[in-house]
Design a protein around this nucleic acid. Sequence first.
RNA 1: GGGCGGAUAGCUCAGUUGGUUAGAGCGCCUGCCUUACACGCAGGAGGUCGUGGGUUCGAGUCCCUCUUCGCCCACCA
Length: 921
Amino acid sequence: MTTRDAVTDIPPQYDPALDAARYAEWERAGLFHAVEERSERVGGERRPFVIVMPPPNVTGVLHMGHGLNNTVQDVLVRWRRMCGDETLWLPGTDHAGIATQNVVERQLAAEGKTRFDVGREAFVERTVRFVQETGGTILAQLRAIGASADWSRTAYTLSPDLSRAVREAFVRLYERGLIYRGHRVIHWCPRCLTSLSDEEAEFHEQSGQLYHIAYPVTRVHAAEDPRSIVIATTRPETMLGDVAVAVHPDDERYRDLVGRTVRLPIANIEIPIIADTYTDPSFGTGALKITPAHDANDFEVGQRHNLAMPVVIAANGEMGATGDDAPRVPPELVGLDRFVARERIVQRLRSLGFLVKVEPHHHAVRRCYRCNTIVEPRLSDQWFVRMRPLSEPALRAVRERRIRVLPERWEAVYVNWLEGIRDWNISRQLWWGHRIPVWYCDGCSHVSASRTDLTRCPDCGGSVRQDEDVLDTWFSSGLWPFSTLGWPDTTDDLKAFYPTDMLVTAPEILFFWVARMIMLGYAFMGETPFHTVYLHGTVRDTKHVRMQKSLGNGIDPLDVLQLYGADALRYTVISSMGLGADTILDPNDLERSFAPGRNFVTKLWNIGRFLLTNVGSESVEPLERIAPDRLTSSDRWILARLDAAIAACDAALGPARPHDGTWTEGELNAGLRLNEYTEAARTFVWNDLADWYVETSKVRLATPGPDRDVARTVLIHAFDQALRLLQPIVPFVTDALWQRLPGRAPNEYIAVAAWPTARRAGDGGGDFELVREVVTALRQLRGEYNVAPGRTLEAIVVPRDGAAGSLERERRTIERLARVSLQIGPAPASHGPAAHQVLSGGSEVIVPLEGVIDVAKECARLRAELMSLEKQLTGLTQRLANEQFISRAKPEIVAAERQKEGEWRTRSEQLRAKVLSLCGA
RNA sequence: GGGCGGAUAGCUCAGUUGGUUAGAGCGCCUGCCUUACACGCAGGAGGUCGUGGGUUCGAGUCCCUCUUCGCCCACCA
């Protein structure tokens, strides 16, 4: 905004429709562009401050979760930018393997096709096109909420650069022996047709049935009594894949049966009874069916006992077996969905008499985190990352305080997870993602992991084929803090900006993403990727249900922008940002949720409106040139309040980084209290600046003379500083106002203006507190006696020692704010019925109200006040008489209590005298 | 099954190491369009800090019990 509108043209509300143009101007001015040479790590002058944005899914659209996450980051980044750091907020998107593939597959399904109908190459091409069409959406939406990211560095996990980093990372881990191919039971999604990591297979509680099934023991000779072993299972369909029944070796009930066999019903084959300590004798019947191909634990038992591992459920979740195992699945069950088959098998068992009983059973089943399908444990070949060696430095980093996790309680969760970490299945049977850079030789069966595409076997020169699978999408996001800066090359960006500083995200991806970034950061960079992990809460509705599009309880941030503007959205989100606290918003009442933000923006706007119309266009002296003795008590007061507000904001935002790479005890949990920061800035602007200082200044601004200039200077200074304090939260309205302040050059932007520092000068304006007390007391009396607003009262203030002068100087302010005609001095010898108010310092306010005052009412009011005060005083006196308190409480607390007691006593005596004179006994 | 967090005004939440008469926003009541703002101003009502016990001179704050809501983790079929 280079033109300054005539003040009369300023509308009474800020118009958020102008936000987009304003943002475009910021971007044009390059305000958010970080310059690597300025980083002190490469010889520059500035400390770097870097946040890498958690990349949203490339085809995603903005929801409130993004809104919250990115607003938090933007506030931090804007704060540090004003503090003079070379600030980089690095944005980007994630190709989001399964998620994106599922979207495109749904499109295909609408055309009646599957991905197999179109083929791998065409499918990937189509997905690339889809990403090109929709990929920019969410980044544009982030601009709309004001995100001050460095868009020139926008990254994408599937870009050529980052894909090179992914391949490099894979090969290095492979070469270090940390990646291996394993044959084992993994989580399989029969809908997505891919394996999943432990984290991607989420537990969901559900009620089901526990089926008790009798497996008849094979008789040794015809005369033997028929016996059977009863096993319990929640998944009867897997029994077709059973290869044994296991009992505990010490279990007396079955000791004689170990080594014999049972006949598996339906499949009608003989399987052995084995002893294994994995079996818990106290659960159910103490006998356990072993299905190595369809249960991870059974797999281990199977390995120990060298058992066969027949697969009886196909990849798509339908019953079926191949080869020698084919006879296990009866023809009528082949091709049935696993859950249909379950019912059939149960019916069959019942009719055959093998079903002993069915019990209701509550348990947790794993579901695919992308499509919610119940995951099927499945035996297959997958690539794994050996995690133990990687987890050690990641654990040490937190234990040795090179990384802090806020809120602190998540640190224990992080540690607990890393301590029990298991190998990470990184291969996915998908088409959308980074193809695994491994080639198999057709001739010599040599396996090569390669940085470049191979066409010939490096060993024998034979033809090769690349592994069909792609990598877990979280593998590439795990490299994000350095892959986005140019790794594996040693780029200037990497030197200037790695390690980054803070990582801001939701706790739900602590394991998926944060922990892996830390592990991979150490693995490849030898250093932590960031020193602070800030985990914020979740956006929920008023029933505390997580906001989700699919649940229909979401709020579209774009609706909020439209109705109330980006600043209102940001203010609302940040002001409720208690450390780790969830944000509750009402999707059915946007007004209620976002009005506070909008109201605050309007208030700020109108302070500016007043100021610009009243300060005038003449130049304003800078505060430094105003001699201290020209400042009034109100000036000194507001400047002291400003200092306090700055200190409170600084304390709430906290240290930006640890001093020497390690967090001290005191700093570990300090800062990032965004709600406290917001509140400190808000109360200053609204309750101090607007309610008192602006009101006080009105008289001075209307009176020509040297004091008018002082008022103009202090007003402009205080407002300027307040805007700076608020810029990170409400960047649009503060920018609009700040640019219009007198003396501002056209190309100055508050986003890169200096963060305020306290002046710590002057006496703090304590005198003005008495003025405020007098005004408040008079207003209360007006209210108490229902004095008509238009009526000017006569009022007498009897000042405490030495207070007369400052009261006299603020006479017109008091008269205006309280609508009184003021007399300052000793109490008149006599006056008619009057209302009295005794103030804290011993000053007294007397309002004679002939004809209006009700003596009885005033007596009642005074008596009530006296009683209340004396009650408090009694308590206080008792406390001060208590030797235990005197000896054990901190001296400063005792001193404060003593002083308070003195004040209260004086006040109580004065009140008592008033009561006696006005009301008699 | 293990662990963690919340329960404070009608609603949504602050309340740092125990120490003034427990605060804010919204809502509510009364009165005001007082020429920056009715998205506002002034005044006001409203809380036995979930329950029961304990430690302490003193507890919303520390300890234990219970109730309740939520979250994370987990190979008991």
